[in-house]
Design a binder for these strands. Structure first.
Length: 497
RNA sequence: GGCCUCGUGGCGGAAUGGUUACGCAGCGGACUGCAAAUCCGUGUAUUCCGGUUCGAUUCCGGACGAGGCCUCCA
């Protein structure tokens, strides 16, 4: 079955038809670099990483171009820079903020297991491209110059006709509605309340570049124009997929479409617009004032990245997601099960067909995850008889079909960016280094108690044996008795969860 | 105020005009000296009120509830 994607432009699920199957082109709006990435920022990064991986699987690794920008010119950045580095000249402070934030962002997304995009342009590298688009928009009457600003006119767009789409078509609202609903302070130089800024003048000390359209003095771009310029540069006037968070539908993507289509005389900027749903934290909107702002950096201190990623994918990308500690625990349990049963492929194995089909159905990751559990049941069917139940004995007993399922499990997880072996190692290290260092008493005492308990057990002194086990339990240590390969009793322990 | 999305079991979460996946938890069992771990089995749900239909959780209308956008935001 072919790939089907939900398109915000048409509000339906459509078969995906790339413009050029030899080179699928996708653009995702990246971060404005002024603060640590939070889990809300992480959602589109992870979701579109899964899509990127799926597209690479379907069309070939070298046949997908993925562009995700870094917006490093924005008034929020200026404010942050002035606040954090008051002693520095503004432009120098801005440079520090954008470089530090971008470096942190790269660290975070790499830790989350996301592939780097094919291109990751910075807005400041593409000012010339923005000026070109602005010049064209003014020349063709879609934009005008006023008091050193350049403004885009949605009204002009709507009277253009021809191929040019209606302004508001993406967000599904009319110009009249937007005028009626405008609560914005309307700047005096705007002809209409809905006009938006393409270029604005910079004062002394603010970041500035030579202005377009004969405007004297330095200026800087408005918010939306950078994506129009960068997508054009790397992907052309019309490309396949444009993604981002649902909050970007309006005004960001609507305005990008307006700028791009009017400047290029095209009907579409991208054929498919995809938007991920919003995220809440423990049932509440995430906000700095509520103090429930969860950064990726902090989250990764507490959890293996695979747990974060899996938690994100347990909910379909278009649904709202409630980010809870409980959900993280659940993901952890599921990954433990997968780690127990996944087998490293010893030959070429594809992810299971049902798994691929679920992903191809508009990235139905919950359905895909259900398939992972089915692979687990298949894999363990051979190992259900009691006699062969020793730890480690299970995988050896798998039949060919079960082994295939166990290998498909690994491959399927890999396709959504989860390296189950890396997770297993991370989990083990976190337990053995982080937790065990912290616990009292130290390891030696635990070992000594276990030895004493096993001596009591050998003597069938159950009262003493149970007393020691309870003593350890009170310390947070869980014992696990099992039989080794030679039939000898082996007692292992772990920190109680 | 305008526009939009969503409401499925104890929890998470798919799907569907006609026995409501899957996971977690719970319960029963196997195993175990007893536990833990593991395995087997299993109960429970479509917010409410109308309408269309042979049949609605699914389609339509309304109510209630949650969330989003309209202003920086993934």
């Amino acid at each position: 079955m072919g790939l089907r994607l939900y398109n915000t432009l048409t509000r339906t699920k459509e078969p995906f038809q790339p413009i050029d199957a030899d080179q699928v082109r996708m653009y995702v709006c990246g971060p404005t670099v002024y603060d640590f990435a939070h889990i809300g920022n992480a959602r589109p990064v992870i979701v579109f990483d899964v899509l990127y991986r799926l597209l690479r699987h379907l069309y070939g690794d070298n046949h997908v171009t993925y562009v995700r920008n870094i917006t490093d010119v924005d008034d929020k950045i200026n404010e942050r820079a002035a606040r954090d580095y008051p002693a520095l000249p503004l432009n120098e402070a801005i440079g520090k903020v954008t470089h530090e934030t971008a470096a942190q962002y790269h660290k975070d997304v790499a830790a989350l297991g996301c592939l780097p995009p094919t291109h990751e342009p910075r807005a400041t590298e593409h000012i010339a491209g923005m000026r070109d688009i602005i010049e064209r928009l003014v020349a063709t009457g879609f934009a005008y110059v006023a008091e050193g600003h350049v403004l885009f006119s949605p009204a002009a767009m709507d009277s253009a006709g021809g191929m040019i789409p209606r302004y508001g078509a993406l967000a599904n609202r009319s110009l009249e509605e937007m005028i009626a609903g405008a609560r914005v302070d309307v700047a005096p130089y705007k002809r209409e309340a809905t006009d938006f800024v393409l270029w604005k003048p910079s004062t002394e000390g603010e970041p500035g570049w030579p202005s377009p359209c004969g405007i004297a003095g330095l200026g800087r771009p408005g918010w939306h124009i950078e994506c129009s310029a960068m997508s054009k540069h790397f992907l052309g006037e019309t490309f396949d997929i444009h993604g981002g968070g649902i909050d970007l539908v309006f005004p960001h993507h609507e305005n990008e479409v307006a700028q791009s289509c009017c400047a290029h005389g095209t009907a579409r900027m991208a054929n498919v617009f995809m938007h991920n749903g919003f995220l809440q934290v423990e049932g509440q909107k995430m906000s700095k004032s509520l103090g429930n702002f969860v950064t990726v950096d902090e989250l990764l201190k507490d959890w293996p990245s695979e747990v974060v990623r899996f938690s994100m994918l347990k909910t379909h990308y278009r649904q709202p997601i409630d980010w809870t500690a409980r959900a993280m625990e659940d993901s952890h349990v599921a990954l433990r099960t997968f780690a127990t049963w996944a087998k490293n492929p010893t030959r070429d194995v594809e992810p299971s067909a049902e798994f691929l089909e679920a992903l191809a159905d508009d990235l139905n990751t919950p359905r895909a995850i259900a398939e992972l559990h089915r692979l687990v049941s298949t894999a363990r069917q051979a190992a259900t008889s009691l006699a062969e139940r020793g730890p480690g004995a299970r995988l050896a007993l798998l039949t060919d079909a079960d082994t295939l399922a166990a290998m498909q499990l690994t491959r399927s997880l890999q396709l959504i960016g989860i390296d189950i072996r890396a997770y297993d190692r991370d989990w083990f290290e976190r337990r053995s280094t982080v937790n065990i260092e912290k616990i009292e008493p130290p390891k030696e005492k635990i070992e000594a108690l276990i030895t004493a308990r096993n001596a009591a057990r050998a003597a069938k002194n159950w009262a003493e044996s149970d007393r020691i086990r309870d003593e350890l339990a009170a310390m947070g240590i869980q014992l696990k008795d099992s039989k080794g390969a030679d039939g000898q009793t082996v007692t292992t322990w772990e920190v109680k969860r």
